[in-house]
């Protein structure tokens, strides 16, 4: 059975790059994509995923807004979320990491291998 990874980022080309890195973990994965937090919210209402790779800085509904909405509905605790972000502020990152379900973050710029290894670790598979 494949694992589902949801990539949430407003950049189509970056979603392509992330999808490519995820496909290299050496385990069958299905990737889903959303271009902003609202699209991700709707998608998460329809199906469950094993891991969410979430950008913070997005239009419509940003990553923090999505996390707060899911936390309010007590749905975040059942999720496994990694922030993939340009956010550098220690205090804001600490606050977001305190939310249930947020398992860590990867700061842009990152090497594709770093992302691949992090995804493998969070999915509990060896890359």
């Amino acid at each position: 059975m494949s694992m589902k990874v949801l990539i949430v980022d407003d950049s189509r080309v970056l979603r392509m790059a992330i999808r490519r890195a995820v496909s290299q973990i050496g385990f069958e994965t299905e990737t889903l994509e959303a271009g902003d937090g609202q699209e991700a919210y709707e998608l998460l209402g329809e199906q469950s995923v094993d891991l969410v790779l979430l950008d913070l800085n997005m239009p419509v509904l940003d990553g923090e807004g999505l996390l707060r909405r899911l936390a309010k509905e007590e749905r975040l605790a059942q999720m496994n979320v990694v922030l993939v972000t340009t956010e550098t502020n220690r205090r804001r990152l600490s606050l977001l990491q305190c939310l249930d379900g947020v398992q860590g973050y990867l700061r842009k710029p990152f090497e594709p291998e770093q992302l691949r290894d992090l995804v493998a670790e969070k999915l509990g598979v060896v890359s």
Binding site: E87, T88, P109
Partner: peptide, 21 residues
Amino acid sequence: CEIANVVGGQVIWAMGAEDDD
């Protein structure tokens, strides 16, 4: 836009965003 995002993050980090809310 993705380059702008990545470089923007690096620029504000270099300007002190890590500790300046």
